[in-house]
Nucleic acid binder design. Structure first.
Lengths: 111, 111
DNA sequence: CGTATATATACCAATAGATATATACAGCGC
DNA sequence: GCGCTGTATATATCTATTGGTATATATACG
């Protein structure tokens, strides 16, 4: 068995497409199949990896299984990235502005 | 030839250790060897991949080559992560606070 | 109870990536 | 010029992952 990390999980382009497909809400497996262009067993295998890595959760309903994203790995990624924030500081303003609603940034003209 | 993405580049733990080793400034190849626990040719091969992926730049000096981090891939990663910010919003305060020096967050006493 | 549908798993061939060993090349000091 | 050190590349081997086909399991429905 192999334990995937956040990065190795996202290293596969098919899995990134699946994550992308789940961005706006939960999807049944077959819906995902139609979106990512891999056959159903392939999608199921990737979903298992995504599940083991904590990226997705499942909600069974009838014969279908609805997958949706979990937040933890994204937080982990954000935390990792924080260590390197000096390298994308130039874009921090952008970033910060994205948070406006939640915690407005005080622009002080570069101080 | 294989073109690595930001994620597949970081998928390898040795490369993450190399990036980590470069976090606080440039290092010569042999210094990195001592830090990451892989033999020198191995480090060189990983450095090549990191270079091709835009993670590092080189400054030759005498026989040594000093490697240092570039910002672009980190910005790319941050941009990707932005699409999923709804998933780590809970931690945004933390995040935002990390920026304090640059753009202080207006704490509204949790509102 | 039997059939259809949705999903998961097993097995396979092909491929990609990692590590180590050996080798080549370049700059420096003597 | 010669050897020494630092760095890069080539080769071989090994392991892990991918995607496909076929099959198994589970739930719904008539």
């Amino acid at each position: 068995m192999y334990s995937h990390t956040v990065f190795s999980t996202l290293a596969d382009p098919t899995r990134r497409r699946i994550v992308e497909a789940l961005r706006h809400g939960e999807q049944a497996v077959n819906d995902i199949v139609g979106l990512v262009g891999v056959d159903q067993p392939g999608v199921s295998r990737h979903l298992r990896i995504l599940h083991e890595a904590g990226f997705v959760q499942v909600r069974p309903h009838a014969q279908q299984r609805f997958y949706s994203l979990r937040s933890e790995p994204f937080r982990e990624l954000a935390a990792w990235l924080t260590n390197y924030r000096i390298f994308w500081e130039a874009r921090l303003e952008h970033f910060a502005r994205a948070l406006d609603r939640k915690a407005p940034v005080r622009r002080k003209g570069k101080q």
